[in-house]
Design a protein around this nucleic acid. Structure first.
Length: 279
DNA sequence: CGATCTACCTGATGGC
DNA sequence: TGCCATCAGGTAGATC
C-alpha cells in the first residue's frame, strides 16, 4: 500500500513521536511478521531496554536507530500500518502482530492484514551487507538531488517502459503503482513509452513531474484509497487521493482536457491514464 | 542481461 | 443469503 509519500509521512511523525522513547516490552503474536528471525526471543531481546535514536527512510523502508549496534527495519508491504497509541485501552485490531511498549507509556503497534509487511532487527554497521534489498535500491527521488541530464543518462542506460522503470526499486526507490501513474500524467507521457525514446524536453518534464508529484503528495500526507488501508501514525487518512488526476479515476473526466480516463493492465497491475494528455 | 509470471496473504466487492 | 471470482498500495524468485 504505502509508497514513498506515505512512508515519508510516517517517518516524520515517528521522529516527533517515538525518538527518545525507551522500549519497555515487545509482544509478538506470530512469526510471519518477523520471519527473518529464527524465533520471537531473537527479535524481542534485541529491542527490549533500548532507546530509539532516530528514523530514516530508504525508498519504502523505514530504518529506526537504536542505542545499540542494531536498527529496527520496517517495510509495510501492501497493508501494513504503524500506529502510535497512548493508552493500552484501545482494543487491539485483529491483525495486530507486534506491539512495542515504551517505558514512558504508550506503544507502537504493527498492524498488517495481508502480512506482506515485516519488521526485523539487524546490525546498523554495513546495514546494506546484511539487507541486500537495501543495497539494491536506486536513487531516492525526493532526497537525492540530481541534474536532469544525469536523470536522462539513467533513462538512456535502460530500455524499459517508463511505468515499469519508475516502479523498479533498483532504478528509483519508493515509487509504486499510484504515483507512477500520477507522475506520468503530470509529465504528459504514456506508461509504455520506452525510456530511451525521450527528447531532452521530455526528460526534464518527467524529472520535474516525479519530484513535484511526490513532494505534493507528502504535503497532503499521502493517499488513502476507498478501503482506507493506508493510515498515518495516528490512524488518520491522508488527503492526496482527492488530488489524483488519473489513479482510480477510470471513466471520469480528465481534469485537464475532459477526455475519459482509461484503465489498462501493465505487468498485471491496473494503470490509469488520459489518452489525450499523455503521448 | 531483462521481461514476465507466480506466490505470498486477508478482506472487500460484485455477479449469479 | 451464500458461493465464487476478481481485485487491492509490494516484492522476491523462478522461468523464459
Amino acid at each position: 500500500m504505502p509508497e514513498l509519500p506515505e512512508v515519508e509521512t510516517i517517518k516524520r511523525d515517528l521522529e516527533k513521536e517515538v525518538v527518545g522513547k525507551r522500549i519497555r516490552s515487545v509482544d509478538v503474536s506470530g512469526m510471519r511478521s518477523i520471519r527473518r528471525h529464527p524465533n520471537k526471543k531473537h527479535f524481542i531481546t534485541k529491542l527490549e531496554g533500548h532507546k530509539i535514536g532516530g528514523v530514516k527512510r530508504k525508498g519504502k523502508y523505514l530504518v529506526i536507530k537504536l542505542d545499540s549496534p542494531d536498527v529496527l527495519v520496517a517495510h509495510l508491504g501492501m497493508s501494513g500500518q504503524l500506529l502510535r497509541t497512548r493508552g493500552t485501552k484501545d482494543p487491539l485490531n485483529k491483525h495486530t502482530h507486534v506491539v512495542i511498549t515504551f517505558t514512558q507509556g504508550g506503544a507502537l503497534r504493527f498492524v498488517d492484514p495481508r502480512t506482506f509487511g515485516e519488521l526485523f532487527v539487524t546490525p546498523s554497521d554495513e546495514l546494506e551487507d546484511h539487507v541486500p534489498e537495501l543495497a539494491h535500491l536506486g536513487f531516492d527521488p525526493v532526497d537525492d538531488m540530481m541534474s536532469w541530464t544525469r536523470f536522462g543518462d539513467l533513462l538512456m542506460a535502460r530500455k524499459a517502459k517508463l511505468k515499469t522503470l519508475l516502479m523498479d526499486q533498483r532504478f528509483a526507490a519508493g515509487i509504486g503503482n499510484i504515483y507512477s501513474d500520477e507522475i506520468l500524467f503530470a509529465a504528459g507521457l504514456r506508461y509504455d513509452r520506452s525510456s530511451d525514446s525521450l527528447t531532452s524536453q521530455e526528460v526534464r518534464r518527467l524529472y520535474r513531474a516525479m519530484v513535484e508529484t511526490l513532494q505534493e503528495a507528502i504535503k497532503h500526507r499521502g493517499s488513502s484509497l476507498a478501503d482506507e488501508q493506508y493510515r498515518d501514525l495516528f490512524g488518520e487518512s491522508g488527503g492526496y487521493q482527492n488530488m489524483h488526476k488519473v489513479y482510480d479515476r477510470e471513466g471520469q473526466a480528465c481534469r485537464r482536457c475532459r477526455s475519459t480516463i482509461v484503465r489498462v493492465k501493465v505487468n498485471g497491475r491496473s494503470s490509469f491514464l488520459c489518452p489525450q494528455c499523455q503521448v
